[in-house]
């Protein structure tokens, strides 16, 4: 049970890291995610079915996600569409694209295909059990991604990206085009989301066009739960708490599925629970902030 939660938590943590980049660092609420997650799954499934190397398929899935993100950023930047709407547009278009990618099918089974996870279990799974092999693999994978992200956010480019959500004027003042940063940030985010989608297809054994439904909300809930765990301004802890938040969220969902049965909850209620979880998190953050005067957000207008 516990290893199952950990595997799921780590698998989705890759997606949550992407959501964290857009929502928290860029302050760019990006709904593309609901489309780029199944895009990653679809690309992986159809490539592997066509006989491609699973590692190549994973890389292409990641690239596909990056392209989806760039598409959203382009709609937002060039057509001056609000970021929320730009994401919804891409997400909606991706639904059709995902079906195309899977060869005009809404889902694709991976029963006999060789995937990264299956190959790994075949080689190592004899002694320790399948779940533990998966857990080991995802611990390594998520750690590598986390460390790469940490390094990236220490570079000059990463720092500037970090400032964008906080103070766009400052980014402009430092001679950087904010539009370029949005392309980089949203592209990177959706690349991670699609990567997560590709591994989730392997984990579940199929890709489905509806795999992405509610992914953004799950990601957001995970980010917010993580924020209760640790307080810091260091990127090392920020990414760490995203991963922990994802695991904890999957834990809560597991409990909802497992024990919810006794109070009459069905798996169909999980989305409601996720939403309520976000609302509760918001209420807690609001009440924590309540004492003292509210900080002015805009500041005085320049005369």
């Amino acid at each position: 049970m516990i290893e199952g939660i950990l595997v799921e938590g780590l698998l989705y943590a890759i997606m949550v890291l992407g959501v964290f980049i857009t929502f928290r660092i860029l302050d760019f609420p990006d709904l593309t995610v609901d489309g780029s997650f199944p895009l990653g799954a679809a690309i992986f499934a159809s490539m592997v079915t066509a006989g491609a190397d699973p590692w190549l398929a994973v890389s292409v899935a990641l690239l596909g996600g990056v392209l989806a993100g760039l598409c959203t950023a382009a709609i937002h930047t060039y057509l001056k569409v609000p970021n929320l709407l730009a994401g919804i547009l891409t997400m909606t278009m991706l639904w059709s694209i995902n079906i195309r990618v899977m060869g005009n099918r809404p889902n694709l089974q991976l029963i006999r295909q060789s995937t990264i996870l299956r190959n790994l279990v075949d080689v190592l799974g004899g002694g320790v059990g399948q779940e533990w092999v998966l857990l080991g693999f995802f611990v390594v994978l998520v750690l590598v991604i986390k460390i790469l992200l940490d390094i990236f956010f220490h570079t000059d480019l990463g720092l500037t990206l970090g400032a964008l959500g906080n103070n766009p004027q400052m980014v402009i003042s430092s001679g950087v085009n904010p539009a370029n940063l949005k392309f980089i940030g949203v592209g990177l985010s959706n690349g991670l989301v699609a990567l997560s989608g590709a591994f989730s297809a392997q984990f579940l054994g199929f890709a489905d066009v509806n795999l992405g439904q509610g992914i953004i909300i799950a990601g957001l809930a995970s980010v917010m739960i993580g924020e209760f765990l640790l307080r810091s301004n260091r990127i090392f802890f920020l990414t760490l708490r995203v991963i922990l938040g994802s695991i904890l969220f999957r834990g809560i969902m597991y409990l909802g599925r497992y024990y919810g049965y006794y109070v009459g909850l069905t798996p169909n209620d999980l989305k409601l629970i996720t939403g309520l979880l976000i609302i509760v998190s918001l209420i807690i953050t609001q009440t924590k902030k309540a004492p003292g005067p509210r900080k002015k957000s805009g500041g005085p207008a320049n005369a």
């Binding site: 000059d156 480019l157 720092l159 970090g162 906080n166 430092s174 001679g175 950087v176 301004n233």
Partner: peptide, 19 residues
């Protein structure tokens, strides 16, 4: 929401920042 040193790095060189 960023440290003094990170702020100063950004201000130090104007123009596009690399990796």
């Amino acid at each position: 929401n960023m440290s003094l040193e990170d702020n100063m790095v950004m201000a130090m060189n104007k123009g596009f920042k690399g990796l």
